[in-house]
Each structure stands twice: as C-alpha cells, then as structure tokens.
Nucleic acid binder design. Structure first.
Lengths: 288, 288
DNA sequence: TTCCTTATGAAACATCTGTTTCAACGGTTG
DNA sequence: CAACCGTTGAAACAGATGTTTCATAAGGAA
C-alpha cells in the first residue's frame, strides 16, 4: 500500500527536531518543488541547510533523499490527470467501487454543490439573515435526525463569542420549553434535510406564531417549512451517496459564523484566543 | 506570455533531425518525466543519447535544458492546483466584508480543501481504513470540542445500517468505560482538530495499548496522536475563517459511509428505506 | 572518386548533487 | 563545575549531471 510523503511526515512529526520540522513543513507545503527541483535548490529557497533535508529523508524512514523524491514523483504523476476529468469519467463510466473512485465522486459532488451554493444565494440575503441572528438576544438552534450533529457544531463555534446560542438537540422535550421562553427580540435557526423531522417544522410554526424571527436552512424547495421562515436558504445536497451530502451546508454555516464574528467586533478574536488559552490551561487541549 | 513545451515542439518539429524527433516525441509524451527526472535518466529510458536531449532544448529555442525543464515544472504546477489559484486570489485579495464576498471566500477555501483531500489520499488507504471499520464488531466514535457535532453526524448516518456504532460525545466520563469494553475485534474512530482535545489523544493511546484498531482524522501533521493511529488521515482545513473549516472533513466522512454502505450488502439500502418508513409511520417525519 | 556538410554518440569536462564528516553550540545531567 | 548528549551547518567527498568536444559515419555535390 502506497504511503505519501505527507503521511510519513505525519507519522514521524512528533519525533523530529526543530530544523527537521521546518524542513518537513516545507516539504508538506511544496511537494512539487521537492519532486522537481534538486535538494540543494529546495534547501536554498526554504532556508534550511542541505544536510538537514538529507537527514529528513532518513528520519521519515526513506533509504535516501531520492527515495523520498520518488514518492513525490508518484504523487505528481497522479495529480497530472486533472481532477475534473477524472470526476467526469467516473460519473459517466458508471460505478467504480474503489476507495479513490468513491472519494472522487463525493468530492466532485461536493464541489458541484458548493459552487451552486455560492452562485445561487442572492446578494443581501445572507446579510439579512445574519442581521437577525446578530441582533437577537438569544438564538435557539433546532435540528433533528441528521441535522442534529451539524447544529451542534454550529452551536459550538458560536459559543466562543456569543453566549446566548442554545442548542435544542435531538432530544425533543426541551424544545417546547425553550421556544416558550423566546420572543420577537430572539431568533430561531433551524436546519432540516430530507427526511424532514416534524419537530423542526413545528418549531418553525410555533416561532412564526410567536413572532420570533427564523432562519431556515434546508435541501428542498418543497420543504413544508419554507414559507414559514423569515429567512430561508435552500442548499444543494445532491451526491452519489444514498444520504444527502452536508458539505455545502457546512460551508454556509461556517460563512454565517464568519459574518457574525465580523460583527461581533474587533476584539472578538482576542476573546476567543483568551478562551482557548483558558481551555488549554485547564489541561483540556494539547498544544503543538 | 507562456509557451508550453508541446507548442514549441509543434513549431519546430519540421526542422528537427531524426533523433531529435524521437527525443521530442518522448518529451511530448512524458512531460512529467522531463520535469522530475534528470536528463540522463530520461535519455536512458527513452533510448536516446544525453547529448541529443541537450541539443533538443536548444533546437526548441531554449537557452538550456534546464530552461525547458522549467517550462515542464510550471505546467505540472499549474495542472496540479486547478482551484487553488482562484481560492488564493479570493483569500489574499483583501477583505471584502459583504455576505457574498465572505461566502465566496469560504466556498473557494472549501473547494481548495476538497480538491486537496481528493488528491492527497493514497490509493488503498481508504479501503484499509474502511475494512477495519467494516470488520469491527463495535465501533466507538470519539470527538470533542468542535469535532463532537461531526462525530454525532457520522454516528447518525451509520446507525441506519450498522447497529454497533457508539458515539462517545463531548461528555468524557462515558469514554473510559466504553473503551474498557472494547477489544482487538472492535475499532475506534476519532476526529480531532486544532485545538486538539487531550481526551481524544488519550483515547487513541488507550486504544493502541489495548490493541484496538484505530482510524484517526485530523487537520495537522503535527498532531500528537498521528503516530498512535493504525489508519490516519490528514484533512486540509485552511480557510478564511478564524476557525478551521470542516467541509472537506464532511466529504471524507460521507465517503467512508458510502464505502461502508457498499460493503454492507445489496439490501442495506432497502433496510434503510424500511427504517425511514417506520420513522415516518411513527409521525416523526414529514413526507413531501 | 574526393570534398564538404550534417548528424550522431562516446568521452572529457566543469559543475552540481546528495551524503558524510567534523567542529561548534546549547541544553541537560552528574 | 565538567561531562555528555543531541542538533546543526560548513566543508569535504564521491558520484552524477548537463554540456561540449571530437571522431566517425552517412550522405550529397563536384
């Protein structure tokens, strides 16, 4: 089974010395350079001594620097066939079942979906939705079934700099209670994909009745909740998979987080860093 | 104005001598060879003398053989990163803050990451990891902090056709207990991104000690847990956002689900449909 | 035929490449 | 404090690289 240089670097990164890491980082970032240029040329442009690169190859388990370069060559050769062509071949030539083929199909579908997402969202639409979320006193996140995990992810991202984002996860009992505590100065963000959980639909219904602004993200124009939402986004999710793909949805969610972060003010990022340091000092995370 | 080697060959082909044509044909057919290997190596494998290749470069209007190789390098580099240019432009061309601009940047970054993911996974690597997961009696899913939601999502997808996938979510106490119940016939799938939760790292450590096969997905080569895992994937996550992007990770996870679904047998999809019907008949979902 | 031109590879050449040695440095341990 | 260890780059080294020279061969013209 073939192993790429990047993987070798990953396997050995922990045991590398300072300079070897610098060299390894350069190799990981510039694989084509390594495959095509000479050791000394790479050494010069990266600012590390030639000897270090020679040592790096051995530290990564290669016999030689040349052996490492051979791996790079193989990767470059694989890359030479343009990705889009392979994706096209795979889509038209039927179903290869090797891991790389399936991966290529998924990747192609994701690229397709993300491109469409980017193209099909009208100007100003995102701002309007983000405005609602930004001004809201509290934001309730609703997602069931497959959407539950993503809503959780969104809630995690937001909790770093916005205190009042509440995740109403898969567990349904809390939802009604949480909704009853919200008013027009709050907001609801719901995520629902096929198959649509009734719970999410009724949450939107309830929100509308109580005058709570809603942002709704779904995958079909025929979703029953679409007319109920104040701000609705339809994200393409078609894919080769049996289930629908969430990649484009993640992009949209992360974009929303980005926009909210920008509105949160200049020092929001500082506050996040502080919170991260706090997390680290509690021994929860591992520092590189 | 760049001219490729192929074009130069076309322009000069008529004026070339016999051997020079043989050499030119070889160069046109194997541009990667020329870009990556030495003149003498190319000469040997093509059966033409080294001197001829040196002369060919000049006959095509290059100063040098090295100048010709530089053109080859440029071509390889260009083809290698189809999306990255656009992504790079968007990322570096300064910070438009309108919703569409931010979305475009995120989309570009996601496209970039997905392309790299597709490219940098070695053949056979996915299969090996999926094999482990498929054969496992039980699979424990580990993810903390930002990865918790995605792990949850994966667990949800899998529960439709694989009974024994257990999610060890953000809550840490259950993790140790769950791990202690696993053995070499089981598997652990862990997801960890910067900042890396210590809990995930130690889960992998524990799994390794107990001989449990592990699949590990992370975002940095420097992750401390990388050497501990039996099957490790490094997914690119760079993005315009303060936080790292999970879009490419979602693609990888969905691909894994796809491959597992394929191995689950032909009737797995039928069983899922039946389960969905069941869910619907319980009044949980809304049918379009 | 002889003379001249062109094409070609072997070999010689200076240069460059990757490796290894070695001395210097910084940190740790006794 | 000294002794020791791992890390690092400069320099030395053998071998490889790209170019050029040169001898040979093949053809064309006189």
């Amino acid at each position: 089974m073939a192993i790429t240089i990047e993987e070798r670097i990953g396997q050995h990164y922990g045991g590398l010395s300072d300079k070897l890491r610098v060299a390894a980082d350069y190799v990981a970032a510039n694989p084509v350079e390594v495959a095509t240029r000479s050791l000394r040329a790479v050494a010069t442009t990266s600012g590390v001594s030639p000897a270090t690169f020679s040592r790096l190859a051995r530290a990564l388990g290669y016999d030689d620097y040349e052996a490492m370069r051979d791996d790079g060559r193989a990767a470059v050769g694989r890359r030479m066939v343009p990705f889009s062509q392979r994706a096209h071949d795979l889509r038209t030539s039927g179903a290869g079942q090797s891991g790389r083929e399936v991966l290529a199909r998924h990747a192609a579908a994701a690229l397709h979906n993300v491109s469409f997402l980017e193209r099909d969202i009208a100007p100003g639409k995102l701002e309007a939705a983000v405005d609602v979320l930004h001004k809201a006193r509290r934001v309730l996140l609703v997602g069931s079934l497959g959407s539950s995990g993503l809503v959780d992810y969104l809630g995690y991202q937001m909790h770093w700099f916005a205190a009042d984002w509440i995740v109403a996860g898969r567990n349904g009992t809390a939802l009604a209670a949480a909704l009853s505590r919200l008013g027009p100065e709050d907001a609801v963000l719901a995520l629902s994909k096929t198959p649509h959980a009734k719970r999410s639909v009724s949450a939107l219904e309830a929100a509308q009745k109580r005058g709570i602004p809603t942002v709704f993200i779904t995958d079909t124009y025929s979703s029953p909740a679409l007319p109920l939402a104040s701000h609705a986004f339809v994200v393409p999710t078609e894919g080769p998979q049996f289930f629908s793909s969430y990649a484009a949805t993640v992009v949209l969610l992360e974009t929303i987080v980005s926009l909210l972060l920008a509105r949160a003010g200049e020092d929001a990022e500082d506050r996040i860093r502080a919170a991260e340091d706090q997390l680290h000092s509690l021994g929860e995370t591992w520092a590189p």
